[in-house]
Design a protein around this nucleic acid. Structure first.
Lengths: 333, 333
DNA sequence: TTGTAGGCGTTATCAG
DNA sequence: CTGATAACGCCTACAA
């Protein structure tokens, strides 16, 4: 991949009039090199524009000084989702001072199945943060089996033993339920998120743990405005007397709000609405959303720390971490 | 980076009862392997969960089967900018069928200067698409010197000889100027973009090439709403009689629009306004923006094709490509 | 069709 | 402090 002939350690050593070992020591800042030798080597390096060959270095050291952020989602979707933006920001923040490169990897639809996996297991990276897992995704288990250090953003649904960091979705949803109950609402409904992701499952579970009739009045939606609008319509059609709704995400709540407006329902007078995430959306709606806050950037940061600690061998680590969530009261309840 | 001891070619060969070369041939789908041998090898590979060591492979083949998308911008900014989202989408689209992995690299503020460069030159990737260059960024020249195939998104300002793909900013800006002139505007002004980026420079040049008094009535702004608002205010203060403004980006135009409203100027009655980009912003303003459309996704796609062609050795390639831009008339002129 | 042997550019372990 | 020398895991002529 280099023009004609990239200079090697050997070449530098010749020019500097020393041995390869000495050059290697200089490059890696190892002790035991005389000032004179170091100077000669530095000069030679500059002159030849020498850059160490990573492949050779990786081969012998068995480390690459880079970690991967793996997004198990189609690449073209990633950039438009603010969730990933925050995760990325957090991962970056978590890496400061670690002297490692971050490599962002996404699913490519046209690649054969194992491409991502063999890239990761093939020694391109020292470890991986994996985010956006859906039920049944075999990737994390495979990576762990292969011995690659991995930390997940979000609880895995498959029950595999992989360390993860997640927001406490269960407790957050429970708080939402309690809030609605204590503010006098009686006919409670929820729009649950996708049940192939832990966030969807756990928020539903937390809700159901606090609500009188857990199995009643549940609609499902993906994380989209349209889905939320549709689910709200279903709910309204089947249970016209509901006076409170917990939406499993702010974006779902936005859709619900739209449907409620179309049906002439006033929020919070006729129906109270609670969202989840405390994203920017929550303050741009009218009325502003009562919602459960999770700190997504912190999620990325903590996950990265966990991975780096694992790489550094700072055992023992907790197998998983739950970050607190918090109810934020605004005008929709 | 593998658990205890990752299996090697050697191990597979032993289990399969063949030589390393035969295993290698199977892995690389080379001809000249008997059915029996292939079967034995495949079985052994599955049994041992063998994954080829990339470092070793890279070292000898001198290729990595991955290309980099390098964003010369702080990582945490990248995800929030829709421009990069579109570029990424285009790059992905351009890679379909290429059997390569995409590695996204961004500046990390805490890294020493050469980290990105030595990562790229050290043989981690076969080539790079580099985007978002500011004047004086030494990266592309260094990469090219080191022999790494590189294609730039956007014309480099430094005059270095690196292939690039860009939108035809000059012609687009000229079209904006002509449009304002032919619709009867007389006192023309422009809010130019940052002059440390080609997009800013070229749009200003295109404008100045078509306007009666090129040096007159120019304000400068970065690509932000606030900058546009401020620049518009400057213009208004200094030249109260202007009746047309060309903003070098839609986001700048949004700011200008705000200032104009504050000053009681009607658009387009009192002042005509043209933007650049045809981003989503252009249709969310009131009035909707007349603007110059550029296809950013296409930009990413074409740049990637160019790089892949270069890697494939499909010479000779045009050193650079300009993608057409097009005036879109709406209500602001 | 298969196996043997040499080398890719580093690091690391030894003696000197 | 410095310099040989043996790996690291794989590919690739070349020979069988």
């Amino acid at each position: 991949m280099r023009g004609s002939q990239a200079p090697t350690l050997e070449a530098v050593a010749r020019v500097a009039g020393v041995s390869r070992s000495t050059v290697s020591r200089v490059i890696n800042n190892l002790p035991g090199v005389s000032k004179r030798a170091k100077l000669a080597v530095d000069t030679a390096i500059a002159e030849l524009r020498y850059v160490p060959n990573q492949a050779a270095r990786n081969l012998v050291t068995r480390r690459t000084n880079s970690i991967a952020l793996v997004v198990s989602e189609r690449g073209d979707r990633v950039f438009s989702d603010p969730f990933f933006a925050k995760i990325l920001r957090g991962v970056y923040a978590g890496m400061t001072g670690s002297r490692r490169q971050l490599v962002l990897l996404m699913d490519q639809e046209d690649r054969e199945d194992g491409a991502l996996e063999s890239y990761l297991c093939g020694g391109h990276v020292d470890g991986a943060v994996v985010v956006s897992l859906h039920r049944g995704d075999p990737l994390p288990a495979r990576l762990v089996e292969a011995g690659l250090p991995v930390v997940l953003v979000g609880r895995p649904l498959s029950g595999i033993k992989v360390p993860y960091v997640d927001s406490d979705n269960f407790t957050g949803a429970a708080a939402a339920a309690r809030h609605l109950i204590t503010t006098g609402r009686r006919v409670l409904a929820t729009i649950a998120g996708p049940q192939d992701m832990a966030a969807g499952v756990d928020r539903l579970a937390g809700w159901q743990a606090c609500v009188p009739e857990p199995a009643e009045r549940v609609a499902y939606s993906d994380f989209s405005v349209e889905g939320g609008a549709r689910a709200m319509a279903e709910l309204l059609a089947e249970f016209p007397d509901i006076d409170a709704v917990f939406a499993a995400a702010d974006i779902i709540a936005v859709g619900a709000l739209r449907t409620l407006a179309e049906h002439g329902k006033r929020v919070p007078d006729d129906i109270a609405l609670v969202g989840f995430d405390d994203s920017v959306l929550a303050t741009t709606t009218a009325p502003q959303l009562t919602t459960v806050r999770q700190d997504v950037e912190e999620l990325g940061r903590t996950t990265t720390w966990h991975l780096l600690a694992q790489l550094a061998g700072d055992e023992p680590l907790p197998p998983s971490v739950l970050l607190p969530t918090e109810l934020v009261e605004r005008s929709s309840t």
